[in-house]
Design a binder for these strands. Structure first.
Lengths: 194, 194
DNA sequence: CGCTAACCGGACTCGGGGGTCCGGTTCGCT
DNA sequence: AGCGAACCGGACCCCCGAGTCCGGTTAGCG
């Protein structure tokens, strides 16, 4: 019975220490991915969690599953942000605010862009991606209908621009929020109607 | 004696077959890098050149040297393009034309963006990069002075936007010139004055 | 308290890419 | 043609990260 709802579906009861370690691992992974990006290694995550590699693989069958878990959190965050933006009175300003908020967070958390860029296909992650994509498209549509964006702007463009820029800035260890905000502006300008 | 000037400095005379293989390797590398990006492996390049790995390492002490050789060619091409743009009557149009030309070539040659993104520091390559950077900055300055670009636009922005987008599009195996031209436009729009 | 199932983690294998070595071959000068 | 130096490439080494195994440990129920 004990079908206590967890963050993720938990079919069988586990021991308390196992549950605790799973949480430690996912926290450590989020921290490491935030610093180094999704390409960070499992050994580093395990060490940061104060745990052996095997323990990581106990809760997450492969590295992809671990990445997916963190990425899903970030995608859900973006979805919430974009959905909130839909209720804003000024569609163009709402769009800009959302992009800048994402860019700002990315300054201190590489996993934001990483979650959009990850080339991983697991049901959980695909679903989160689809939801985020839909929310962003809605945000774009509203701004376009208000005459603020170019006709062919899509959420794909957003992903390409944002994850691309993020990739380059991460390699140069850029963490200055001002720089990130500025590139957020550039993205907005790129999609704005001429 | 025999100090015949080569493309790259050649201190000692080599045998003809060695010289021929060097050329084959660099052609193969350019082709592979164009298809797969600078992260392609040496084995693949050697095979494409019809040569063993060791022969690759005979002419190029490390993979970085090989990448640098191809990257320098591409950077020189960009430099020529940008320099020609400087003589154009319309600074804004010249800027746009150059960006679009680069984007168009990138559609079928990943090494263009790769040459700007490569995190390699060899004298030859650093020099080429500096020259390209200067030429692009001059192009930007002229367009800005004409009132076409935002005040803070730099060649660094160009590199960040272009290599970033290229990175994402390469991963999705995008080779359609139309798509590339469109992203070229987006880059131009991003840097345009509002 | 005691016992068993579940869990833990250090040590292991496996695969792939960069870089090197040596026995056989070829160039090219005489 | 003959010969030595230079060159060729298949086989090898090393490192690093993903993923697995087993002997020791601990939770937690009766």
């Amino acid at each position: 019975m004990a079908l206590a709802a967890e963050t993720t579906t938990q079919t069988r009861p586990q021991r308390a220490d196992a549950r605790r370690n799973r949480e430690r691992v996912i926290r450590a992974a989020a921290a490491v991915f935030a610093d180094k990006g999704m390409e960070a290694g499992i050994p580093e995550i395990a060490e940061r969690a104060g745990v052996g590699k095997a323990t990581v693989y106990r809760s997450f069958p492969s590295k992809e599953h671990l990445v997916a878990a963190v990425a899903t959190e970030r995608l859900d965050w973006i979805t919430t942000l974009a959905t909130q933006g839909l209720t804003d009175d000024d569609p163009a300003a709402a769009f800009e605010r959302v992009i800048l908020a994402i860019a700002e967070r990315q300054a201190s958390d590489c996993a934001v862009a990483g979650s959009m860029a990850a080339d991983i296909h697991l049901p959980e992650l695909d679903a989160a991606r689809a939801t985020t994509h839909a929310a962003l498209d809605a945000l774009l549509d509203r701004a376009r209908d208000a005459g603020a964006l170019r006709d062919d702007a899509t959420a794909v463009d957003l992903r390409v621009l944002f994850t691309g820029i993020a990739h380059v800035l991460r390699e140069s260890h850029e963490h200055d929020p001002a720089v990130w905000s500025r590139y957020g502006e550039l993205i907005v300008d790129a999609l704005r109607v001429r």
